[in-house]
């Protein structure tokens, strides 16, 4: 329960910090950190325009997408506190329920019969498919390292001993940040601020969404960021007392947001054709982690 509350709280200002960081690095003052959330609330209050091509799929898709994110969040623990749902192999469920959301957001985009949205849908489907092995091998390595297969047990029994394990922690954080960027369609693979439909990935998929649905999708993105931030934070909270854990959690989330902002300010989006290779490279990082774990366990000597 605590993890859910914390993640929801973080999601309220996460995007704000990212935007603020981007503003500051480009020499502007920028909006307040709650501005993105205010935008979402404003959208929730609005009516919506629907395309005459669309069917009921388009109506239910954003809600299912949002529900899948909530469901995925329920699985994530917080320090020594279990997530609301926790069982052996729950990270498989986590990944698959997110994939379900992705399925619906893709067919929701295709439902408009647009000449642009299929493009985004196609790219999103391909990128998330390529990013998936990285996540599974990463979690598989930690399952191997700790001997457990649920998020909660993996994080509680994860302890850093040797230098290699610190290296692994850093690598894992890197992989998770990159997965978060890909899943949320942010900078190195997708530019959310682009104004040309042909260069969009996620944004082009939601061109026809408006009002409440668009609000759900945007809030979903915020929640997804908070969710990956929580995963990263879980590497560090360890066995501290609850207050310190919460503090660490918030600090990690804010640092993560600032990092996303800086990354977005100082890097350019890759060429679309190179994205696939880049994302697949993440899998090799994961395999590196896997070998690192084998090294710690004394299989390579």
């Amino acid at each position: 329960m605590l993890s859910l509350v914390l993640m929801v709280v973080t999601s309220l200002f996460f995007m704000g910090i990212v935007i603020r960081t981007k503003s500051i690095t480009s020499g502007r003052k920028g909006p307040g950190i709650f501005q993105p959330m205010k935008d979402v609330i404003r959208l929730w209050k609005k009516g919506a325009v629907f395309s005459r091509t669309t069917s009921f799929i388009f109506q239910i898709a954003p809600s299912i997408y949002f529900a899948s994110i909530i469901m995925a969040i329920l699985v994530i623990p917080f320090g020594q506190y279990k997530g609301i749902v926790s069982f052996d192999g729950d990270f498989v469920f986590f990944a698959y329920v997110l994939a379900l959301g992705k399925f619906f957001s893709i067919i929701g985009a295709l439902d408009t019969g647009s000449s642009f949205e299929g493009m985004g849908a196609s790219r999103e489907a391909l990128y998330s498919m390529l990013a998936e092995p990285a996540f599974f091998i990463l979690m598989g390595s930690f399952a191997l390292y700790t001997g457990h297969t649920s998020f909660y047990e993996i994080f509680t029994s994860l302890h850093f001993g040797s230098y290699i394990s610190y290296a692994l922690g850093i690598l894992a954080t890197f992989v998770l940040i990159m997965i978060a960027m890909i899943e949320n369609s942010r900078m190195p693979v997708d530019d959310p601020k682009t104004h040309l439909e042909l260069t969009m990935v996620h944004e082009v998929m939601i061109l026809d969404n408006s009002g409440f649905d668009l609000g759900l999708i945007l809030f979903g993105t915020n929640l997804k960021f908070a969710m990956y931030g929580a995963l990263i934070a879980n590497f560090f909270t360890g066995s501290f007392s609850i207050l310190i854990s919460i503090l660490i959690f918030l600090v990690v989330q804010i640092l993560f947001a600032i990092m996303v902002g800086i990354l977005e300010s100082f890097s350019a989006r890759f060429r679309m054709g190179n994205n696939a290779q880049f994302i697949f490279t993440l899998t090799s990082f994961s395999i590196l982690i896997f070998f690192g774990v084998l090294l710690i366990m004394g299989k390579f000597v």
Binding site: W44, K46, G47, A48, V49, F50, S51, R52, T53, T54, I60, S63, I64, F66, A67, S68, I70, M71, L74, V85, V97, T112, G113, S114, S115, F116, L207, D208, G211, F212, D213, L216
Partner: peptide
């Protein structure tokens, strides 16, 4: 749980957007 959650969100969606205007237009092109 997931099905209940989806139903719940769809219910809220219906409740919130019930009285809002919902014009039908062409797809964005």
């Amino acid at each position: 749980e997931f099905i209940v959650l989806v139903a719940f969100i769809l219910y809220i969606r219906k409740w919130v957007t019930n009285k809002k205007p919902k014009p039908i237009q062409a797809t964005w092109g």
